[in-house]
């Protein structure tokens, strides 16, 4: 870890000063690790833990607002979340460990960085960490890397579970910055790497996530978060799927689906979701949806298995949602 200055403002505007070399510190579960590993080298660390943004509140439209500083653990356990958004609670509980969820915040979860081995190792070429150095993950040990949304410059997987559910829920991210406030759909919040992989998301310098708004989710029991990973707890997804289906008379009125573990950002394909609309659940329908979701997937040295596995996980998740038997995060059996 290198020397840095530290401040702990108590007002939002004070925090948003707008320098590139600033990092916001909340739970610290990701930033501190990255600083210890010499991956993040901020000149200034702005500790935002004294700011407000720590409530979960009702929205007039029947939705919820999640404060950016509410911890993942508190969010997953909040009665309004477990009651209205069990998909979100399930995805949060599928991630990390209780200790980490107790510290990690909702805003931090949006901004967590990839687990790419090469990103974490300063001796390795990594465009995301050190722009212009190249991508050592290509041709390297990349079993955990992305197969969708990759570029020549970067194949790093976006690691969050929570954000996959937020994408399926069509959540909105509220931002506050030197230019004032704005909102961004969570589906547009993260960026494809393209040739600028060092920019994970659309945040501008000084901009801060203040809250996440969830629109009403009329899914009832027809949702699931299915996460396939190398061990049954405390591992990042190889493939994960968040699904919400609005069912009506045995048909899918509207479906929403997002993939984790396979993309460089939470992976959503509106055309794939549209295939679900008005259709009764069927194997052929779900296979088509999976195919559309995986369209354009590219494997590198070690990660072709993700492309084979993902369609099966998608189909299973769609069935779990269709029949209203969401995946339990405590009973590890997949039904």
């Amino acid at each position: 870890m290198r020397s840095f200055s530290y401040s702990r403002p108590s007002a939002l505007d004070e925090a948003c000063q707008g320098a590139e070399s600033v990092r916001f510190l909340a739970g610290g579960t990701n930033l501190i690790d990255l600083m210890k590993s010499d991956v993040e080298r901020p000149a200034h660390v702005v500790d935002i833990k004294s700011l407000p943004m720590r409530d979960i509140t009702d929205r007039p439209d029947g939705g919820l607002r999640l404060g950016a500083l509410v911890t993942n653990a508190d969010t997953a356990a909040h009665p309004l979340v477990t009651g209205r958004y069990p998909l979100l609670a399930s995805a949060i509980l599928a991630g990390a460990s209780p200790q980490i969820r107790n510290m990690a915040t909702n805003g931090g979860n949006l901004n967590q960085r990839t687990r790419c081995h090469y990103f974490y190792d300063p001796a390795m070429a990594c465009n995301k960490r050190s722009p212009g150095t190249g991508c050592a993950a290509r041709g390297g040990r990349n079993r955990i890397m992305a197969v969708l949304g990759t570029s020549d410059a970067c194949i790093a997987t976006f690691p969050s579970d929570m954000c996959i559910a937020l994408a399926a829920l069509n959540a909105t991210v509220n931002l506050h910055g030197p230019q004032g406030e704005r909102t961004v759909s969570v589906r547009d919040y993260h960026r494809l790497p393209g040739d600028t992989p060092w920019r994970d998301n659309v945040l501008q310098p000084g901009e801060i996530v203040t809250a996440i708004d969830l629109p009403p989710a009329p899914f009832g029991p027809h949702h699931t978060y299915l996460k396939i990973r190398d061990r049954q707890s405390f591992a990042f997804a190889i493939v994960s799927v968040a699904v919400g289906l609005q069912m009506e008379d045995g048909r899918i009125r509207r479906g929403s689906i997002a993939l984790g573990g396979v993309g460089t950002k939470p992976w959503c394909v509106p055309e794939a979701e549209a295939l679900l609309n008005g259709q009764p659940p069927s194997h052929s329908l779900f296979r088509d949806v999976a195919e559309r979701l995986l369209h354009g997937a590219v494997a590198d040295r070690d990660n072709a298995a993700k492309i084979r596995l993902a369609p099966r996980v998608i189909e299973r998740a769609l069935w779990q949602a269709a029949v209203g038997t969401p995946q339990s995060q405590t009973d590890k059996a997949i039904r």
Binding site: R115, H117, Y120, A123, R141, D230, R231, A235, K332
Partner: peptide, 21 residues
């Protein structure tokens, strides 16, 4: 990673040992 002769998953997040589950 044979290109550099280094074991790449050199931490407990990516070198998996069994969890309780």
């Amino acid at each position: 990673d044979e290109r550099v002769g280094q074991f790449m998953n050199h931490n407990f997040a990516e070198y998996h040992i069994p969890a309780h589950a």
